[in-house]
Amino acid sequence: MMQALIGHIRGIGRRTVDRVSRMGVAARFFLLVLLHSGPSFRRFHLIIREIFTAGVLSLIIILVSGLFVGMVLGLQGYETLQTYGAEESLGVLVSLSLVRELGPVVAALLFASRAGSAITAEIGLMKATEQIAAMEMMAVDPIARVVAPRFWGAVISMPLLAALFSAMGVLGGYLVGVVLIGVDAGAFWSQMQAAVDFKEDILNGVIKSVVFGIAVTIIALFEGYDAPPTAEGVSRATTRTVVTSSLAILGLDFVLTAFMFRGV
């Protein structure tokens, strides 16, 4: 009994140490990526290629999701607001929830499952098929050639995707609220403009999406680079990327929100 308990506690201790040391390795990896970023900026077409795979290929899911999230916000918001006779504030509700929270967070979650998992799978597969080792044997640093361009491509794409998500969401809210239900268009836009501050809301939302982009990309790259070079290892790493980065997004969102919107 006592023995089993001690065993469990030992297990917790070991897992904690493992996690912490893994985070340390990931942090070192992050630093390494930043240090080796020079060549990819000198050869910018490498980054452009990765903006395509991370950003352009995520466009459809981001745009469609943004539109629907905005439309749902419009419907639900109207239902609630009309009880108080404040349906003119629909624009405020839709835009503030999108710009402050849903835009950066949902876009980052979608990005993690669309682009993040693809990055992990691709790098894991490159490792499993010895492409990374082959690159090293050709005297080409894989961090500089493979990892850094993907990092910058994804980090550049993320805020653009989040902005597109929010913009589509506002349009969705407008479609449902103004075009479909018939809220006054002038009130919808003017109240929105009066309530949404460029620095407080929009800029903070952009900062959030940049932070999420860095977190998701580093997790995806690290999991891929660290994956055991087998089919099972790669598939597990892909799952772990989605789970870990989703948790990281939500956790970071809380911390950032606490700092940004405290007392306002």
């Binding site: 913009a167 949404v196 501050d197 929009i202 952009v206």
Partner: peptide, 14 residues
């Protein structure tokens, strides 16, 4: 993406 940011800044924001 830049158009979206501008839209948010000018049309949605103040």
């Amino acid at each position: 993406g830049i158009v979206a940011v501008l839209f948010l800044a000018l049309k949605v924001g103040n």
